[in-house]
Structures are given as C-alpha cells and as structure tokens.
Design a binder for these strands. Structure first.
Lengths: 228, 228
DNA sequence: GACAATAGTGTCGAACTTACACCTTGTCAA
DNA sequence: TTGACAAGGTGTAAGTTCGACACTATTGTC
C-alpha cells in the first residue's frame, strides 16, 4: 500500500509505472473480457482494464497479479506480458508507463468477480460490444486480441479457456468462437487428437437431453504450455 | 539531456525507466550483435546493450532510437519492442524498469559504429562468443534471439538483414546462418519465389570469379513487414 | 580449351490438408 | 414401446504441400 505522508525525490524526473491486465474468457460462445468501473479520477465512472501502480519493491508480474486480485478478486491466473505502452500523454495526471499483461480463464472458473479497491464495479463484456474505455485501454485490448488470435495457430493457447475436463465439442466451440468461423467436426477431431495433447478421462459427460460425450483432459500439467 | 541542478519529488516512490536495444546483423556468415563498453558506474568497463534513461517527455520508441544513435551513431533502424524487464534488483543504483527493443541491420549498412555518450567503445560480437554482459543484459539478448528465430518461420523478418538488392544465394546464406543448418538450394528457391515477396531487378551481380547471379529486391517498400 | 567455382533448374513419393455424409446413442413425449 | 429429436462419433478420396535428390549453365582463370 501507499503512504502519502512523505515525498520521494530524484535528481531527474521519473515516470510512474503501472500494470494493466486483459483477462479473456469465452462465455455464451462469445469472447469476453473483464473490466472494472473506475471509482476515482481521472476517468471516474469509466470502464477500464484492471491494473494500477507498481510498488517500488515489487516485480512487474507480481504487480499485475496483485492489482487484478485487489480490483476483481480473481487470482491464480497465468499472466503473460503483452506490451508496454508509454505515449507521453496517455495519462492526464503525470507521465505513466503501463506494462500490460493478458490472461485466459475458463468459463467454469467464473467465481463471479467482486469489485474492490479502486473499482466501484466489475463485469465481463462481450469483446465486440465493449463500452468506451479509459486512457488508451482500447488500444491495449486490440493488441491483446491480435496476440491471442495469432497464437491460436502455433500454440496450445486455446486450452487456457478450457476447464479441467471438457468434451471435444466444447473445445471445438471455443476454437470456432475465437476464429469466428465454423470448423469441420471430423477434421478438427483428427487434428486435435493427432497432437496428442489431450487424453480421455474414461468418463462421460451429459450436456443436454441427448447422447453424452466422452470427457477429456489436457495431458500437460496445470499451466498450459504456450509454444512461442 | 538531463539537468541535475534541481530535484523532482513525488508522493510515492517512482522507478526509473530505461530502454535497451539488441541490434542484430549477419556478418561473415555469423549472427552478431552490437554492444557498447560502459564508461560509467555501475559496471564501468563492462560490455552492455546500448540504451539509457527515458526523458520525461519522450516516447519509448524515440528513447530507444535516441540512445542507440547517441551511443553508437546508428540511426534509422526499425525498432520493435521486445519485452519489459523489471526485476526489483536488476540495477544496483535504484529500481529500474527497462523496456527493451530489437532491430535488424543489413551487413552493408555497417557504417562502422562510433562510440559516444556513455559508451567508451562500441563493437560487434558474434552471437555465440559474447563477453560477460552488465546487468541482466544476457537474459535480454537470449530473449531477443528466441524471438528472432521464432519469427523466421512465420514472418519475413530475415529480409531485415538484406541490403536493398541481393542474390538468392546471399538470402539463403542468411537463412542458413540464422537456422544454423544447411538448406536445399532448389527447395529454398521454390519456397521464396512462391511467396512472391521478391522480384528481379533485371541486373546481375558478380560475387567472385565465376558465373554471376541474378539480382533481386524485396517487393515491399522500405520497412520489411513482419507478419505478426 | 580444360578446369574451378557458383548459378540455376525438375521430378517423384510421402505427408498433410480439405471436403464431404451417415450411423449411434441418449432423452423425451406420445 | 416406439418414434422423433439432438448431439456424438466415425473414414475416405482428392488435392496440395514438403522434402529428397543430381545435373547442366555460365563465368573467369590458367
């Protein structure tokens, strides 16, 4: 926490450093991201990415994780650094450099986020129906989305959206949502199974009033490896 | 420039922000990077990446370009942001966040770099014979190299090493250097020409006492597009 | 004119990608 | 119990891409 009772002086001007996080999920077959409503100036009342100022003895990754948890209650995600935004007037208060991160979260981990800290509200928004965003956060979101889509091709990033167990139809549905196009069921299953990244749990899962599907899990441990 | 006659105070501690740049070239059929010898403490006398402190009213990209030019005399490169390093004790003086960049330069643009500013010397080093580096710069170099190799597959990044005109053999040689493996001449030419990214200049180039080769140039304008 | 050195060219098989349709297994309601 | 509904699950053939592979062409030199 910050203690405004003293001041800190330097022989040269220093920018402030923040972290901001773009948290993606797939919800109702739509890509969605997590936003907080700002409680304070500037942009009070605007929606923004969760994030905040770096503590002076805190690693960047830790700051992103802490701010995310403080403002939304969501913890334990794997945060990957995205890009650093530092245009000179991106924050009206002072010079602010923002180191941005992105993360994926499975639908079922949606322990409804709770607002706290500098946020007066928290909610998920469909990616193609975002409200106006504070600062340059719209640009950050765009870059995160480009990265996400690019990584679909050459990494296992999509598994980041899947719960511990899932069916092939559910996985295909996530790919279709992210790629925004339908995929052939047989070819999809062939390709996924050929990669040898998932295995059957042996159980079945009933998702409706019809034939139940085989349940799968990722072969790799907790954190989904992202092939760079 | 910095004016140390006054001080700058903030209600909260601020880190310093620097930029550092990894400049790659291919030289004598080997990958090489540009290093400067530090004139000042800390790590005075050590080799390090060119870079330095962000001016308070300067964009990050501009800072990287400025510091590169000040310390090495090299200007006009396309700098792409790589990653931001901010471990708490990576600089012994104070908390320093470094936004790092990388760039590629063709062999023929090697107007011999000249040391200036905070650098007492500048030189190119073969990538697999680097001296010990100051700060965490070895980690930065490693990450830049991983990114470079990864992008070879799905981008036109290799053209960044080529002069305005070149022969197919020269291009193949750059690929072989970067991939560290020999390539089949016929398959290489087929693949490159199929991409439709280069065109014949109509001229020939004599590279020795033997049959001259056709000269090519990149189809795209000045800056080589890097497909993300 | 023979030799040295690099430039330049085509084919075949294997592997991978894509397009495409039907039967199976469960629920539910008549 | 049976038939309709809904999603689960499976194979094949054609086209395309990728990789291995060897010889002729052109220039300069001796």
């Amino acid at each position: 926490m910050r203690s405004p009772s003293q001041t800190f002086s330097y022989p040269y001007p220093h920018p402030a450093v923040t972290t901001d996080v773009v948290v993606f999920t797939v919800r109702n077959n739509r890509l969605a991201i997590l936003l907080v409503k700002r409680a304070n100036m500037p942009f009070a009342g605007s929606w923004a990415l969760p994030g905040g100022f770096l503590d002076i003895d805190e690693d960047l990754d830790a700051c992103a994780a802490r701010e995310l948890e403080e403002e939304t209650g969501i913890a334990g995600l794997y945060l990957e650094q995205l890009y650093t935004f530092g245009a000179t007037h991106r924050d009206p208060r002072e010079r602010v450099i923002s180191v941005t991160y992105y993360a994926l979260v499975p639908q079922d981990a949606l322990t409804a986020p709770r607002a706290a800290s500098d946020a007066s509200d928290v909610d998920w928004f469909d990616f193609d129906a975002l409200p106006p965003l504070a600062f340059d956060h719209a640009a950050i979101v765009q870059m995160a989305h480009r990265r996400l889509v690019a990584k679909l091709d050459y990494s296992t990033i999509a598994f980041g959206f899947m719960p511990k167990t899932f069916t092939l139809s559910e996985l295909q549905c996530v790919y279709e949502t992210l790629l925004n196009q339908p995929l052939d069921k047989r070819n999809f299953r062939k390709r996924i199974l050929a990669q040898d990244l998932i295995e059957e749990t042996g159980r079945q899962r009933r998702n409706g009033k019809h034939r139940p599907a085989r349940e799968y899990r990722a072969r790799f441990a907790k954190r989904v490896e992202i092939i760079k």
